[in-house]
Amino acid sequence: MPMDVGRVQKEIRDIERDRASGVTIEVQGNSLQKMIGCLKGPSDTPFEGGTFYVNIELDDQYPFVPPKMRFITKVWHPNISSANGAICLDILKDQWSPALTLKTALLSLQALLSSPQPDDPQDAVVARQYLGSLPEYRQTAKQWTDTYAHTQQVVGLEAKVQQIVEMGFEREQAVVALRAAAGDENQAMEILLGA
């Protein structure tokens, strides 16, 4: 059975309507199977002020199976891989329920940022640091947020991304490159062409 397009469209409309939630979503291409979610770093955490992009892929069986989510923005967090952004969160695995939505999943990610669960880590190095020396962890996480997820870099990002996508690059690549280049589209192009 193909994906339940109606439900996904409703979900997207719902997210668009509810601006206060702090999460947004943007569809990639026409199939509704690939999108990029965006969430704000929760306040009073090392992630405050950061904007985090999440790659979302929907299976044909969605919503009966969980969506596949991965952070595009680099994050220093015990439950998120510092290398590839993979997320360790129960509701994205066996605790997924068809009654959950993309919005609730993104909100859960936000909650995960403010309350890490180092006992069930995705990134052992970060988890060890979190348990061993919390101030150091906070500092690194803050540093990563400043470097990779700072709001200032996001100013005008969409336009730049669009520009790069029009040149024939994948959107995700474009976002990553722009991030790495601190928003400088020329430098981002160099990265993309170099890669």
Binding site: M1, Q61, F64, V65, I91, S97, P98, A99, L100, T104
Partner: peptide, 22 residues
């Protein structure tokens, strides 16, 4: 649909309600 997917994935022993957290 939920039952079909759960059963074919071998979860017949514990077919859970679809509501979140239930």
């Amino acid at each position: 649909e939920h039952l079909r997917i759960s059963i074919s994935e071998g979860l017949s022993r514990r077919l859970k309600c679809m509501a979140a957290g239930c």
